[in-house]
Design a protein around this nucleic acid. Structure first.
Lengths: 244, 244
DNA sequence: CGAGCCGTTGAAAGATGTCAAACGGCGTGG
DNA sequence: CCACGCCGTTTGACATCTTTCAACGGCTCG
């Protein structure tokens, strides 16, 4: 793995030339570390840079004025954070570390310069954005139209798939390390009800648990009740041929 | 207004040079018309182009396998449709006309070529994408964490704001022309309950109605109970200076 | 004139939230 | 090393919100 998680991720979508790769690696500058429960930035903060998550796990959320929280997404290594700073002066969400994390900070002007010099990187960013958007659509459909059990099942599947990317191979269990309260805030449920759904999934032998560690026991059934689709698989940018 | 709604919209975010504007206008080719309730494309269709909505109103939705529907967004003139075709071979959603509509179809390869030649357009697309994403986050928070009444109020405010952009000035009422069933599918509620919430808002004199036409009577209260933020206002791309 | 879609309303059922309490683990300070 | 306190999980009883089911009326379109 090179120094730039970001360049690596982009390369997986669009083959970058060595020059492009170098340019992109060069722009990812300041390292930033955030400890568990530490806040990278808060809603309405003025943020003029983007971040790439290198190690750890974070989450993006908004607080409503009755105090409730909606977690919009969990963030994993390679994910881009605060891309909205390209357009909004103030952050629309808060980003907090779920586990100790380290990030690379990219000045938005510097990134814009790279894109201007190397437009294929702009296409790559656009591509990453699409994946995020579709994933968010799925979450909207889950929260709007599926049962509590289905939402919890979908969250577990998503967490497993994203964590598996960085986990040591051969282990089929995963430990997201988040509280049931956080699972609730991600799925639009209360912590109490999340707990009931988890235990129900456990009793039906769809999942297993020990400590904070989960095992998918019956993936087919789980996928079925969750309406789950893995959007990080099945990408296709092969059509993109570079013309003179 | 020039021939290209799309170029116009982009220009509002990033000042395009005459050349860039011309290039962008040139690429928007085939006209496509869809009548009310007509389908532009369905989930899993192979879509290799993007569309710009020129006139009318459309919606994007997904169907779950229990038959329920989640409307992800309503689409208005200037909105970009099927940008996911940049990354996914198959459409993740269905797009249907709410009213008679006309669109411009843009081949994805043609658009990519434009971006490669004129990277600032790539940045503009990225910017548009951010706005959509933030709007979708708001919907997720609304559906996940707010009451039925709040969701209906938020939907009405959003519809008014988006419709106002094309409506004749001076009229403060609006006629979205959608059924209560559709409002329910957009907010994660049943048509029956949407009806109850609308009548409640009406009784509390927050909105007025006659026929299918709504009036916002007490915008401040409505915004408050809806947690509403207009994301199409307050954009800032002034930081983007073009360097050599 | 009839059929069907949409809006409206009531009654009842079901899902999820709220409140309260107990339990366990884990880190901290004594 | 132990005791304490805090945080997260678990469970039960109950409240509330939203859905479901059913029926009716108005309106439009054939």
């Amino acid at each position: 793995m090179s120094e730039s998680v970001f360049a690596d991720r982009l390369t997986r979508l669009i083959a970058l030339s060595p020059d492009e790769h170098a340019l992109l690696t060069g722009v990812e500058e300041r390292e930033r570390r955030v400890r568990r429960n530490g806040v990278l930035f808060s809603e309405n903060d003025r943020v003029a840079e983007l971040f790439v998550l290198r190690r750890g796990m974070m989450m993006s959320y908004v607080l409503l004025d009755d105090g409730s929280r909606q977690i919009q997404r969990f963030l994993f290594p390679g994910d881009l954070i605060a891309t909205t700073s390209l357009v909004y002066a103030k952050a629309p969400d808060t980003v907090m570390a779920v586990h100790d994390s380290s990030l690379g900070a990219i000045d938005r002007q510097a990134l814009a310069d790279v894109v201007l010099r190397c437009p294929r990187i702009g296409l790559g960013l656009l591509a990453l954005e699409q994946v995020e958007r579709v994933a968010m659509s799925d979450r909207l459909a889950a929260v709007g139209r599926t049962s509590a059990k289905a939402r919890v099942a979908a969250l577990l599947l998503e967490l497993r798939n994203r964590l598996r990317a960085t986990a040591p191979a051969g282990i089929d269990s995963f430990a997201p390390g988040i509280t049931q309260e956080e699972m609730g805030d991600a799925t639009g449920l209360t912590a109490v009800h999340v707990n009931r759904m988890i235990r129900q999934l456990e009793e039906e032998r769809l999942i297993g648990r020990e400590g904070g560690r989960f095992t998918i026991r019956d993936e087919a059934s789980l996928v079925r009740i969750a309406n789950y689709i893995d959007r990080y698989a099945g990408l296709d940018m092969g059509w993109l041929t570079v013309r003179g």
